[in-house]
């Protein structure tokens, strides 16, 4: 059984209007999904709830048919999810390889194994020659690909990306999108929030979020 949201409603503070309204959705496995929708429609909130970064005000998140409790969220987030954010978050003074190893080390992987996996992930996103360089010497697109490498190195079951190309130019967007879609490990479900219809079009399925509800199909 895959990742499932069941009657999820979320409000930012009591009395505020709900961003998500009783949303239920079963995310198919081993495919790439783009979530599109107007600004403020709750795309990032949806991603944060699905990725167990945020607990919904109401409703539940289920993985493999089991409801995820608050106590389990941290452990499952570490074990099953990989993240790529719109803003590039790296340890800027550290080497590219150190950054790519981070998710693995956080999971308790031995350093040698983590380094080997990180080198493989960097090669997948086209940064195989950059391992020794400091992260702050990379361009914006290279940094975003580093973030993808960090996320996929741990072979997550769910790879969540929040507007990963939002701050990139056209050519770089193409490279980053390809790295995300084609570079993700086999069996990994990609859930990507994007405003870019060209990016969304490259995914297996596009999901539209509007008025707090998710539907299959739609335009960015």
């Amino acid at each position: 059984m895959p990742l499932e949201l069941r009657t999820v409603t979320h409000r930012y503070g009591p009395g505020s209007p709900p961003v998500l309204r009783g949303l239920s959705f079963v995310f198919p496995e081993d495919c790439s999904l783009a979530v599109v929708g107007p600004s403020g429609s709750g795309k990032t909130t949806l991603l944060a709830i699905a990725g167990l970064l945020l607990a919904p005000s109401e409703g539940e998140v289920r993985i493999d048919g089991k409801e995820v409790s608050r106590g389990q969220a941290g452990e499952l987030r570490t074990r099953l999810f990989g993240w790529v954010f719109q803003t590039v978050n790296v340890l800027s003074g550290r080497s590219v390889e150190d950054n790519a190893m981070l998710s693995l080390l956080a999971r308790g992987t031995r350093e040698e194994d983590a380094r080997a996996a990180a080198q493989g992930a960097l090669a997948t996103v086209g940064l195989g020659e950059f391992g020794e360089r400091r992260a702050n010497s990379l361009s914006g697109g290279e940094l975003q690909r580093l973030c993808i490498a960090r996320a996929v190195a741990a072979k997550p079951r769910f790879l969540l990306a929040d507007e990963p190309t939002g701050q990139l130019d056209g050519a770089t967007t193409e490279r980053v999108t390809r790295a995300l879609i084609e570079g993700r490990p086999k069996g990994t479900t990609l859930l990507m929030v994007t405003h870019d219809p060209l990016v969304a079009a490259q995914c297996d399925l596009t999901l539209a979020l509007q008025d707090g509800q998710l539907s299959i199909g739609g335009m960015a």
């Binding site: 452990e75 074990r79 340890l91 550290r94 080390l105 308790g108 031995r110 350093e111 983590a114 400091r134």
Partner: peptide, 20 residues
């Protein structure tokens, strides 16, 4: 399933020395 102590100590040390 979290950081190994040695890896965590190395991470801390690198954080210190790579931000002179």
């Amino acid at each position: 399933m979290s950081w190994r102590p040695r890896a965590l100590a190395r991470e801390a040390w690198l954080n210190v020395v790579t931000s002179p």
